[in-house]
């Protein structure tokens, strides 16, 4: 079992957003999370990643059988958790190369490995750029600064490829992508899929799931997972919207 979330409650500034989430992700699985705007999907992703503006008030999160909630954001990342941001942050003055090199080497250090030399690192960058079909010189630029929406999302997948996470949570990575970019991003994910890692893909569109075939689809509504099913659930949602689920509640 890669990730086990039990009865997770989280709030921000005293307002409860997550109201008892239960979710199990096993190695090799892809889970899709769908749900109306503002129901807590990004909050769930942030809480798993350890963002401290959210307070976990109840529940448990185990990752590789370890209690995740006591770890810092960076420790979780070094343990193999990656979050593809819904809104990737612009960081003027920090080049992607420098950023990724620092990240890769801090993760290596945590795992008892020697830092990667400049040559080897640049070679890895080139390989991973190919994987997500980045041809331009994006990597010399400041992190996300002046990137288009699509470029930002592609850059998230590039970073994921660089860091080779065990659990990747992709928060609306498909939003704002043109059809070609969507295919590229999905291909990137599919190439990184192994029997050892797991993916949680947050999306509003069934279209992405044509490319990244999920094992499970969950509907998050008002801070709870209210329905789970196979990939056909996504089709049904695409067709009928969320009203029929609300009515079942």
């Amino acid at each position: 079992m890669l990730l086990k979330i039990t009865n997770l409650h989280a709030s921000i500034k005293g307002k409860e957003i997550l109201k008892g989430i239960n979710l199990v992700v096993n190695k090799g699985e892809v889970h899709a999370i769908m749900g109306p705007n503002g129901t807590g999907k990004s909050t769930l992703a942030s809480v798993i990643a350890g963002r401290d503006v959210f307070d976990v008030t109840e529940g448990e999160v185990l990752y590789n059988a370890k209690n995740l909630l006591t770890l810092s954001v960076e420790e979780r990342a070094r343990e193999g958790i990656f979050l593809g941001f819904q809104y990737p942050v612009e960081i003027p003055g920090v080049s992607i190369t420098n950023f990724m090199r620092t990240a890769v080497n801090e993760i290596r250090k945590y795992r008892g490995l020697d830092p990667m030399g400049a040559g080897e690192f640049l070679k890895m960058m080139e390989e991973k750029k190919k994987l997500v079909e980045i041809t331009s010189n994006l990597t010399n630029r400041s992190v996300n600064e002046g990137f288009s929406g699509g470029e930002k999302k592609r850059n998230e997948i590039f970073q994921m490829a660089m860091l080779e996470p065990t659990l990747a949570i992709l928060d609306e990575t498909d939003s704002g992508l043109d059809i070609d970019a969507l295919r590229v991003v999905a291909n990137g994910v599919n190439k990184l899929r192994t029997s050892e890692n797991g993916f949680v893909v947050i999306t509003h569109y069934q279209r992405l799931l044509d490319y990244i075939i999920p094992d499970f689809v969950h509907v998050l509504f008002e801070g709870r997972i209210v329905k789970s099913g196979g990939k056909e659930l996504a089709m049904e949602l695409e067709e009928k919207g969320y009203d029929w689920i609300k009515q079942q509640l």
Binding site: R51, P92, A103
Partner: peptide, 22 residues
């Protein structure tokens, strides 16, 4: 920005350094 950097495995002190230097 701090959360973004740390989410990639960069420790808090170094993340602060990166942002200040930038």
């Amino acid at each position: 920005a701090m959360f973004y950097l740390r989410q990639r495995g960069i420790g808090e002190d170094n993340a602060r350094m990166l942002l200040m230097f930038a």
